[in-house]
């Protein structure tokens, strides 16, 4: 492939990915609605909302609020760019994590009780899922022998060796997608969307775009789990993986009530870490036995 074709594809992915993620979220809304005996909004409703928000008059509480919203977007988008360029997973992880922290700080900048509570909960969430996410990435990197995403795409057997890591990543995805039972930071019945509460109009659109990038990045990590030399098979299985992950998350969302933040912290940290440790132990045992 010519370098410019590659570049064009990469740019296209970077620009289109958040919107594809948004459409996926639209699908998610429809499926959820069907599970709840509702019709649900159109698939593109998420995008309609987004463009409507952009057109609104900017209202704000103070300037840092905007700075941190933009920073959030920029850092998660940058993490996604790095991912598409196939660079180091750890840097990608830290850029994305920084983005999340900026979102929380942005929520702290306004004098609003719900925003502060949401930010505190958001930080607690970060403390809950970040170790799991980081360990998952570390295990992927160690298993593949490289942390570069480009190299990881050449490794075929991650799903077979790291099924439990995939499970742990779904636990992270539940939090990242703000789904029950661990949507504590944005719980609208308690703290009215928490960190997002004081954003409106175009600035809310910015945070939404950032959320989509984060979502796209998570899905990107999920696609790492299967690679095949046959590009068609590869793409089909990747899509299937995403679909499975999303469906699992959706079903979990629909059969659970929101739990409290303590439970979120305890469950995510212990479950995620134990699952990943188990996976690591299995690999070590298998290696010593000589199976792999």
């Amino acid at each position: 492939m010519d370098w410019w074709v590659l570049l064009a594809i990469q740019i296209a992915i970077i620009v289109l990915a958040p919107f594809l993620a948004a459409i996926l979220l639209g699908l998610d809304r429809i499926i959820t609605a069907r599970m709840q005996n509702r019709v649900g909004p159109p698939v593109l409703q998420v995008l309609y909302d987004f463009f409507k928000l952009i057109g609104k008059k900017p209202m704000l509480l103070n300037r840092p609020q905007v700075i941190f919203a933009v920073l959030y977007l920029m850092f998660v988008a940058f993490a996604f760019v790095l991912f598409v360029l196939g660079l180091d997973l750890i840097i990608i992880f830290f850029a994305a994590a920084a983005g999340s922290v900026f979102l929380a700080v942005g929520a702290f900048t306004v004098r609003s009780p719900y925003s502060h509570m949401g930010a505190n909960r958001e930080l607690l969430q970060i403390a809950a899922y970040e170790p799991v996410f980081l360990l998952a990435l570390l295990l992927i990197g160690i298993q593949a022998g490289s942390f570069n995403v480009a190299d990881l795409y050449a490794v075929g057997d991650l799903m077979i060796l790291l099924p439990l890591v995939f499970v742990a990543l779904i636990a992270v995805l539940v939090i990242k997608l703000q789904k029950s039972p661990y949507d504590v930071a944005t719980a609208h019945q308690e703290i009215v969307s928490g960190p997002y509460i004081e954003y409106s109009g175009p600035y809310l659109a910015i945070t939404k775009l950032g959320h989509w990038y984060e979502f796209a990045l998570m899905l990107g990590v999920i696609t790492l789990f299967f690679n095949s030399d046959n590009i068609v098979v590869s793409i089909i299985v990747k899509i299937a993986l995403i679909a499975v992950a999303m469906l699992v998350v959706q079903v979990i969302d629909n059969v659970t009530a929101r739990l409290t933040k303590e439970r979120m912290l305890k469950f995510t940290a212990t479950f995620g870490i134990i699952v990943i440790a188990a996976n690591y132990a299995i690999i070590v045992v298998l290696q010593n036995v000589g199976v792999i």
């Binding site: 941190f68 930010a119 930080l123 970060i126």
Partner: peptide, 17 residues
């Protein structure tokens, strides 16, 4: 992860206006 928590809290506090 916990380090990020306490520094972010502080950062947020000084930016609250």
């Amino acid at each position: 992860a916990v380090t990020a928590l306490y520094y972010a809290k502080w950062m947020g506090r000084i930016m609250t206006v």
